[in-house]
């Protein structure tokens, strides 16, 4: 328990350093764009592939579960949309990205720590925490909601494609379900969640890497810790945010 409190304290102290005034805004802007490309654009293929298959699988499962003459078929489209919007495209995609982006950030910063690159920045008078971590946080918080939107769209397309290709339902019914009882606030809820999850993934992973010490084995451990801790905190905040925003 004391260890957890100590780590939490160090985490917030690091955040204090991260959000102190940047040395030169122009340099930070350039780094944010670089990180958006590295962490955000680089995650599009994985997000797209997973979303299209999940959308298709959800549609298939719903069509089997809701197979009854008393249940209108358009509810399959409705269920697919709600699954993608409310949970999959924000939470599940965040968990997947915690593995991809989180381990990437932890190992990158951890390697910089053990090869004294962070010390070199400090010696120059650079606030290394802010210089290395802030652009990553800003980039992911801005970009992950876009990934969520993309995931929702591609997931719904995946569901339509499976409906069309297998003939399990009339594609027109699927489209009708997509429009049925649509609440724009659901999208807002999903985007808020993905922005919060982006912050969690990036800051926790950077924290694990920043305080890595020793050798390459320790960098590997820091990377694993980053993924595990980010995933657990994402699930906790998923519950909290749902309670606050939806209930």
């Amino acid at each position: 328990m004391i260890k957890i409190l100590e780590l939490t304290g160090r985490y917030f102290m690091l955040l204090g350093k991260v959000f102190s005034r940047p040395e030169k805004m122009r340099i930070y802007r350039e780094r944010i764009i670089f990180e958006m490309e590295a962490l955000g654009l680089g995650s599009i293929p994985l997000t797209a592939i997973i979303s299209v298959f999940i959308g298709a699988v959800v549609t298939l499962q719903m069509s089997i579960s809701l197979e009854s003459p008393f249940i209108p078929q358009y509810l399959i489209g409705y269920a697919t949309r709600e699954t993608m919007v409310l949970e999959f495209s924000s939470t599940v995609v965040a968990l997947i990205l915690a593995g991809k982006v989180g381990s990437n950030i932890a190992s990158e910063i951890g390697t910089m720590r053990i090869t004294e690159q962070i010390d070199a920045l400090e010696i120059m008078g650079v606030n290394s925490a802010s210089y290395l971590i802030l652009p990553k946080i800003v980039a992911t918080v801005l970009f992950f909601p876009l990934l969520t939107l993309l995931s929702i769209f591609i997931g719904c397309v995946g569901g339509y494609a499976i409906a069309y290709l297998t003939g399990i339902m009339i594609p027109g019914d699927y489209i009708e379900g997509m429009h049925y009882a649509f609440l724009p606030y659901s999208i807002t809820y999903s985007l808020i969640k993905s922005a919060v999850f982006a912050f969690i993934i990036t800051s926790i992973s950077a924290f694990c890497g920043y305080y890595a010490n020793g050798n390459s084995l320790e960098v590997g451990r820091a990377s694993t810790r980053a993924v595990v801790a980010s995933s657990i905190v994402i699930m906790i905040f998923n519950l909290i945010l749902t309670q606050i925003l939806l209930v």
Partner: peptide, 28 residues
């Protein structure tokens, strides 16, 4: 006012030679 040369060089892996040397000038 301090320059330091580390044992392994400690150059930023993601930056070229010019970018590494230019970094302090960019920032300060």
């Amino acid at each position: 006012d301090i320059g330091m040369i580390f044992q392994g060089g400690a150059l930023l892996d993601s930056s070229t030679v010019v970018e590494n040397v230019k970094l302090p000038l960019d920032l300060f």
